[in-house]
């Protein structure tokens, strides 16, 4: 049962990496869009694309933590003790990001919009970096039960390279999705704009991976030895191939499919990491079965997840279905400011 919950946890992590990651990437491109005039059109597309879904996408992170503390309490406590600072910084980033994005839309004045936009965009860069650094620290075996917070846990070579790669992956996902969005909105110039950025972020990811290989060889021996053989290696190669396919699809403007391949490549790499770590949650100090919570709770956690899939699944399907049919659109000022029929005195 613990194994099943661990897999659910990995699926939720992958869902957050893809759904939330795309939004972080959109924020990254918002940051890089240049001045108010030059960046106007990309920013407008980013706003449009993120609006209806970013809140739901953020909920995956909350699930992840709940599954961590309900399913594997010692794992949760160890990660949050050892990784105190990056997680604290990540949560500050989440506040700035959500607040900035939510408040930018209803604000009118340019100066204020700039401040909110900057808060949103900068924290879209920092938050995934810190979350990635936490994963790097875990993967390189720096987190163990009883370890207290230290700078080494997250400011080590593996953490930094993982943090940078996380930024790269979000930028890649964001650019691919925005390319497809630009296509939907029939903005060919923006298709080219974001397509170029998708290729650039993919190239950056390749460079980072090449730098990362020798570094992790020394710094994260356990993970390195696992990920260079067997199933994990296969998954990594599959991920790389699918990423290459994405680049080709973008080149051929087959924009219907490129988001699926982009998501698949990220999921495959995360799956490779998960499989490589087996049977450890924290290599090499805490296994899945050691960290597992009470059996009865785990059974119920799976049941609750099942019920939730039945409940949330259809509503998510309705959301995306309505979205595909162009039925979802933000309330414009003209809707809330339209005149009401003659005001009768009460």
């Amino acid at each position: 049962m613990a194994e099943a919950v661990a897999w659910i946890m990995l699926v939720v992590l992958a869902a957050y990496a893809c759904a939330g990651g795309t939004d972080y990437g959109a924020g990254f491109w918002d940051l890089c869009a240049g001045g108010a005039e030059r960046g106007e059109r990309p920013r407008r597309l980013i706003d449009h694309a993120m609006e209806p879904v970013w809140e739901a996408n953020n909920v995956w992170l909350i699930f992840l933590m709940i599954i961590m503390w309900t399913g594997f309490p010692p794992f949760f406590a160890a990660v949050f003790s050892a990784m105190w600072l990056p997680l604290a910084l990540a949560v500050l980033g989440l506040v700035l990001r959500g607040g900035g994005f939510a408040l930018r839309k209803p604000t009118r004045r340019l100066a204020q919009r700039r401040v909110y936009g900057a808060a949103f965009a900068v924290s879209s860069l920092l938050t995934p970096f810190f979350l990635g650094a936490v994963i790097g620290g875990i993967a390189s075996g720096r987190v163990a039960p009883g370890v207290t917070a230290s700078a080494d846990a997250w400011s080590n070579p593996t953490s930094i390279i993982t943090g940078l790669m996380t930024i790269g992956a979000t930028a890649y996902l964001g650019a691919v999705f925005l390319t497809a969005d630009a296509h939907r909105y029939q903005a060919p110039d923006l298709v080219d704009y974001f397509r170029l950025r998708a290729w650039c972020s993919l190239a950056a990811l390749v460079v980072l991976a090449l730098i990362g290989l020798p570094i992790t060889h020394h710094d994260a021996r356990f993970l390195w030895s696992r990920i260079t053989t067997g199933a994990p290696l296969g998954l990594v190669i599959a991920g790389a191939v699918v990423a290459l396919v994405t680049a080709l699809l973008l080149a051929r403007r087959a924009l219907r499919w490129c988001r699926y391949t982009a998501v698949a490549s990220v999921v495959l790499v995360i799956a490779a990491w998960g499989v490589a770590q087996r049977p450890y949650l924290l290599p090499t100090s805490l296994t899945v079965s050691q960290a597992a919570g009470a059996h009865h709770t785990l059974v119920w956690l799976v049941i609750v997840t099942g019920i939730a899939v039945v409940l949330v699944g259809p509503s998510l399907a309705v959301l995306y279905w309505l979205d595909t049919r162009g039925k979802l659109e933000a309330l414009a000022d003209s809707d809330t400011e339209q005149e009401v029929p003659p005001a009768e005195p009460a």
């Binding site: 959109a26 969005d181 595909t324």
Partner: peptide
Amino acid sequence: PSRPAAQDGDPHG
């Protein structure tokens, strides 16, 4: 006028 179609099933429609 309409918000055009997204691809189905994507989290970022």
